[in-house]
Design a protein around this nucleic acid. Structure first.
Length: 460
RNA sequence: GGCCCCGUCGUCUAGCGGUUAGGACACCGGCCUUUCACGCCGGCGGCACGGGUUCGAGUCCCGUCGGGGUCACCA
C-alpha cells in the first residue's frame, strides 16, 4: 500500500477564491485523514498572467487557513527541462506529430462547424501525412481513434469517453513550449501524486491526460472531481480568502463552512478542524453543486466564536480592535474578560471588536446611541444613576455579587425595580441599549469607570 | 450545438425499495431574561415533470424540462 500523495496546483493569476480554497482544503483533509502528503505546486507557466504577488497571496491564504503543505513547493516554470525530456520521448515514440495548420485555419473550421450546429474536433491531414515542411508547426498528440477511455472517479463515478470525441490536443506550441494537459501529467507523475482532487471543470481534461499518462508509460493516478460552487454573485465567489478573514471570519469557521459545501457527515453541522480531518471521506462528497449562503456561513462562524478557546479569541480580536481605533498591546486580562462577556453576541470578529469598543474608550468619549439616549435618559433616570453611582462608591469588593447587592439595596430603598434602572444604566455604561449583563459589564469596566459613566450620564 | 455531470424545503443536506421524508441556516410564533444576544420549544416549507419496473419508488430504468461544466498554440 503506497502512501497517499495529493497536491493543490493553483495558477498564480489572482487571489485564492473560495472555490480554490475548498479544493485546497479537500486535498488537505484527504491527505491528513489518510496519513499522506499534501503537496503544493505553483502552475506559473503562463507568464502573461502569473505574478509573484498572486503566488504570495495564495500561500499566505493557505497558511491562514491552516493548510500547511509538505515537502518543497514545486514551481512549474522551473521544470522546463523535464517537460522537454518528456516531449522528446513522445516525439521519439511518434506519439505526437507535427501539425502545420494555422490558428486561422483552425478557427475558421471551428466556426464553420459550430455554425452548422456541430462540435469541432480538430482533424487534419498532418496526422497521417509524413511530409516535412519548412513551416511553423505545433506538436499534436496522437489520440486513439477507437474505443473509449474509462476511469472511476471517486466522486463522479465511472466516466467513459469515446476516444473519437477526444481531439488530438496540442502538446507544444509553435515556440516549443509545452501546454497544460501535458505538463500537468509530467508534474503530477514527478511529484508521485496518487490522487488528483480538483474541480469538476477539469473532468473533460481527464481522458486526455490519461492517454498521455499511458503514452509516457506513467502510472495513472486516481481522480476525484469536486462539484463546483455556484449561485449568488460572482463577486462573492471570487472574493479572496483574505477578504473573508478581513470580514471577521475565523479560519476554523470558514473551513467548517466550505467543507460542508458538498461534504456532509450525517446531521452534524459544527466541526473543529481536527474533527473534519477525522471524519472526512471523499466517498461522502456530493456530486451536485452547491451555492454560498452567507447567512449560514455567518452562523457557522458565530458557533466557532462561541466555542473557541478564549485565549485564541482574545489574540485574534486585537487587529480588529485596532481598526476600531483601540490599541491594545501585550496581554490584557481586561480584554480577555471583555471577550468572555461578548462572544455570544458576535457573528464575526469585526462585530466582536465593534461590540468591545465601549470597554476601552475614555469615559468622557463614550458615544451614546441617539435612540437609546432619548428613550432612557429622562431627568428622573439621570438622577437615579447618580444615586446609584454614589451608592456604588461604598462597594469595596468589586465583584458581580457585591455590585448586585449594592444596586438591589439602592433600588429597594427607593421603591424601584431593577427594570426601572437597568436600561438607563446600560446606556450610560455601554452607550447602547444592548449588551451583556450589567454586573459583568461593570466588573470588566472596573469600579472607577463604571461609577464615572453612571455619574456623568449626559442628556445632550 | 456536440460531449459529460447534476436535480430532496428559499439555501446546505440526511436518505441508499417499505420513513408521518429527518437535521441545519433563514423566516414566523413562544419560553428564558435587567436589554441584546446565546439557549430552549413550536410552526411554515421539499422529493422538477411524465412514463415505466415492482406488492410497494425520493430511492431502479427511460424520456422531458431545468441547472452546470467543457469544447484554446490558458491553466
Amino acid at each position: 500500500m503506497s502512501e497517499v500523495r495529493v497536491r493543490f496546483a493553483p495558477s498564480p493569476t489572482g487571489v485564492l477564491h473560495l472555490g480554490g480554497a475548498r479544493t485546497a482544503l479537500f486535498n488537505y483533509l484527504f491527505a491528513r485523514h489518510e496519513g499522506g502528503k499534501f503537496l503544493l505546486r505553483i502552475e506559473d507557466t503562463d507568464r502573461e498572467r502569473s505574478t509573484d504577488e498572486s503566488t504570495k497571496a495564495i500561500i499566505d491564504a493557505m497558511a491562514w487557513m491552516g493548510l500547511h503543505h509538505d515537502e518543497e513547493i514545486v514551481y512549474q516554470s522551473k521544470r522546463i527541462d523535464a517537460h522537454q525530456a518528456a516531449l522528446d520521448k513522445l516525439i521519439s515514440q511518434k506519439s505526437v506529430y507535427k501539425c502545420y495548420c494555422t490558428p486561422e485555419e483552425r478557427n475558421a473550421a471551428r466556426e464553420k462547424a459550430e455554425s452548422e450546429g456541430g462540435s469541432y474536433i480538430h482533424r487534419c491531414d498532418c496526422r497521417d501525412a509524413d511530409t516535412e515542411k519548412s513551416l511553423p508547426y505545433v506538436w499534436r498528440f496522437r489520440m486513439p481513434q477507437e474505443g473509449e477511455t474509462v476511469f472511476d472517479d471517486i466522486v463522479q463515478g465511472t466516466i467513459a469517453t469515446a476516444n473519437r470525441e477526444i481531439e488530438d490536443l496540442v502538446v507544444a506550441r509553435q515556440d516549443g513550449s509545452p501546454l497544460y494537459n501535458f505538463v500537468v501529467v509530467v508534474d503530477d507523475a514527478f511529484q508521485r501524486v496518487t490522487h488528483v482532487i480538483r474541480g469538476k471543470d477539469h473532468l473533460t481534461n481527464t481522458p486526455k491526460q490519461i492517454q498521455i499518462y499511458k503514452a509516457l508509460g506513467l502510472p495513472v493516478p486516481q481522480f476525484a472531481h469536486l462539484p463546483l460552487i455556484l449561485g449568488l454573485s460572482k463577486r462573492l465567489r471570487s472574493a479572496g480568502v483574505e477578504s473573508y478573514r478581513d470580514q471577521g471570519y475565523l479560519a476554523s469557521g470558514l473551513n467548517n463552512y466550505i467543507s460542508r459545501l458538498g461534504w456532509s457527515y450525517g446531521d452534524q453541522e459544527i466541526f473543529t478542524f481536527d474533527e473534519i480531518i477525522e471524519k472526512f471521506e471523499l466517498k461522502n462528497v456530493n456530486r451536485s453543486e452547491g451555492s454560498l449562503d452567507l447567512q449560514k456561513m455567518e452562523w457557522v462562524n458565530q458557533q466557532h466564536i462561541q466555542n473557541s478557546d478564549g485565549a485564541l479569541l482574545t489574540r485574534e480580536v486585537v487587529p480588529f480592535l485596532k481598526k476600531e481605533g483601540i490599541d491594545i498591546d501585550g496581554d490584557s486580562s481586561k480584554l480577555a474578560a471583555a471577550v468572555e462577556t461578548m462572544r455570544a453576541r458576535a457573528k464575526t470578529m469585526v462585530e466582536l471588536a465593534q461590540n468591545l469598543k465601549f470597554y476601552f474608550v475614555a469615559d468622557d468619549a463614550l458615544e451614546y446611541d441617539e435612540m437609546a439616549r432619548k428613550k432612557f435618559f429622562t431627568d428622573d433616570a439621570i438622577a437615579k444613576l447618580k444615586g446609584m453611582a454614589a451608592a456604588l462608591e461604598t462597594v469595596t469588593d468589586w465583584t458581580e455579587e457585591a455590585i448586585a447587592e449594592c444596586v438591589n439595596a439602592y433600588i429597594a430603598g427607593h421603591n424601584l425595580k431593577l427594570k426601572d434602572v437597568a436600561q438607563p444604566a446600560r446606556v450610560a455604561l455601554v452607550g447602547r441599549a444592548a449588551g451583556p449583563g450589567l454586573w459583568e459589564t461593570m466588573v470588566v469596566l472596573g469600579k472607577a469607570s463604571s461609577i464615572q459613566r453612571l455619574a456623568t450620564a449626559r442628556t445632550e
